[in-house]
């Protein structure tokens, strides 16, 4: 079996040279290919506006809500081409996207948030089991299950958004910047829980993060996206030890000093 096909067979998600157009003019990603192996956690890293969120929206089908569309390439989920499938159908197939910015249903209670995400065919008893499982992962939510979600703290809202996604019983969970605006101890709490969900439920995870340091601690592989293209792909260890990644995304590296700024921009050679 050729290499490419072999990778695809082991992947729950296989995205091949996908281009996305917004409003039929703006090219947001320019041929992105990403593989998510079954049961693994993968990170998409990169700076603001690099095309990470667009990549997730192409996979979940939420592009449509922002007048975007896939103009080239294909997305396969468990071997099935889903490029043309409606967003709500993709949720039924097992893809759930936790969008950026903690979109909880503010005027509903956390408990109702979970109910709202339940598929129409899910029986009440199954839903209750799912809810208890989620409250076990996120004990903070259990305490506040009947208060109004809009008044939860940022961390609690993020937990609720993840919990709500779990109600749809996904086999691929995608998260867009779950660490955004959260205190470091909350980030590590949420990332620990994500790792636990990944191991216990066997859910594959595709994580978009600007916080590369935290992300590379829990994922097995990462892709670096810049200007709508994948510029680097490797295991978490490879990426962590790469000097460019260290300088630009991990804030480390040698000589992070103002005089070297020019030097950096020259070395960020995979840009543009």
């Amino acid at each position: 079996m050729p290499m490419q096909e072999k990778v695809e067979a082991q992947s729950i998600l296989s995205m091949n040279s996908v281009e996305v157009l917004y409003d039929n003019v703006m090219l947001a990603i320019k041929g992105v290919s990403v593989q998510v192996p079954k049961g693994k956690m993968i990170a998409l890293l990169g700076s603001n506006g690099a095309g990470k969120s667009t990549t997730l929206k192409a996979i979940s089908g939420l592009l449509k809500a922002e007048r975007g569309r896939i103009s080239r390439g294909e997305i396969k989920f468990n071997g099935t081409d889903i490029t043309e499938v409606l967003a709500q159908k993709r949720v039924g197939m097992g893809i759930c996207h936790v969008v950026e910015g903690r979109h909880v249903f503010e005027h509903l209670t956390p408990d109702e948030n979970l109910t709202a995400a339940a598929p129409l065919g899910m029986s009440r008893s199954v839903l209750n089991v799912e809810k208890e499982k989620i409250y076990n992962y996120f004990p903070r939510l259990a305490e506040r299950r009947n208060s109004q979600s809009g008044y939860l703290s940022g961390g609690e809202q993020q937990m609720l958004a993840i919990g709500r996604a779990l109600v749809t019983q996904p086999s691929l969970l995608m998260l867009d910047e779950p660490s955004l605006g959260l205190a470091p101890f909350l980030v590590s709490e949420i990332f620990d829980i994500l790792q636990k969900i990944n191991q216990e439920e066997g859910v594959s995870v595709l994580l978009v993060e600007q916080n590369a340091l935290a992300a590379l601690e829990i994922v097995s592989e990462g892709y670096l996206i810049e200007n709508g293209r994948v510029v680097m792909h490797g295991t978490a260890e490879e990426l962590k030890s790469n000097s460019d990644i260290q300088e630009f995304y991990l804030g480390g590296g040698e000589g992070t000093d103002f005089h070297n700024v020019k030097h950096y921009s020259r070395r960020k050679r995979w840009l543009s």
Binding site: Q88, F105, E106, H107
Partner: peptide
Amino acid sequence: IKLRAIADDYMASWSVGI
């Protein structure tokens, strides 16, 4: 509840398959 969820947030509703 799903209707009230829609009233709150279209994007989040789509994202969980409503």
